[in-house]
Design a protein around this nucleic acid. Sequence first.
DNA 1: AACAAACACAACCGCCGCAGG
DNA 2: GCCTGCGGCGGTTGTGTTTGT
Length: 286
Amino acid sequence: MVRAPCCEKMGLKKGPWTPEEDQILISFVQKYGHGNWRALPKQAGLLRCGKSCRLRWINYLRPDIKRGNFTREEEETIIKLHEMLGNRWSAIAARLPGRTDNEIKNVWHTHLKKRLNNSDTDKDYSAKRHRTTRGDKTKVTVQSESSDHLHASATSGSHVNSPQPCSSSDLSSLTDTSFGAEETTNDNDQNDSMVIVVKDDDDENNMGYNHQFSSESTFPEIDESFWSDQANSAQENTNPLEFSDAQFQNDHLFSTWSNNTNDQYDMDFWYNIFIKAGGSPELPEF
DNA sequence: AACAAACACAACCGCCGCAGG
DNA sequence: GCCTGCGGCGGTTGTGTTTGT
């Protein structure tokens, strides 16, 4: 059996997504959900294959993506999980809220693997990563750090390069300790990067959010039920690309939220993409 | 200042597993 | 049980940016 290629039709666009395409995809998913990725681009009027749309949404446009640098805790967790799970990036990503398998995979290949292979150059490597990449698009900062603890934890297992799978129960203790209510600061970081994670156990009361704010990457996490609710409530709409002025009432919420972040790119990005595209989820109170 | 090398990460490709007919 | 379509996953590539010489 020969599987038909994903994009059998010629003329489908490839390469980087434009803001306009992002906006179309977001507004469509926001209103109708993504029940059928293959049919989505046609319905939404995108010249992309469904796979490309799905990847773009999963890896970049999802509202619960935590943008910005990986914290030391996250990097340690990745290393530990990789010891146990191997290259099962999706399984690792499932234990790192707001992070995608693609992102974790990239970090592993470009950063963590090298660090583990050459722990002597940790500080040099951290210094290299402490910069802005992709122009103003992505601000990457890494706290300067001592790698002693990291290296010890990474090499205490069987073998870094030949990890052994383990049961999910083995992993529970890892994430329980890694992601609770916490506030981390690093005095060594000139940017004073700070991450505050507030997890509310009562999802019914917090509307599905896990509130995660940092000075560099701040957008409330929203669970899938938010989107399905949005999709259900939008069933009466006929034109997915038509927005009402009333949706811009979210501006004041954005203003409140934006006062609590100093990442200009994130602010611009979410303002242009999310709020203008059809209204933001309710932003948390400060 | 110019060039090359290194880096970071978005995006693509091909395969696999699963569900439904 | 077989076929087909789909979503999901991991490996890899392409490209823009930064750093070093």
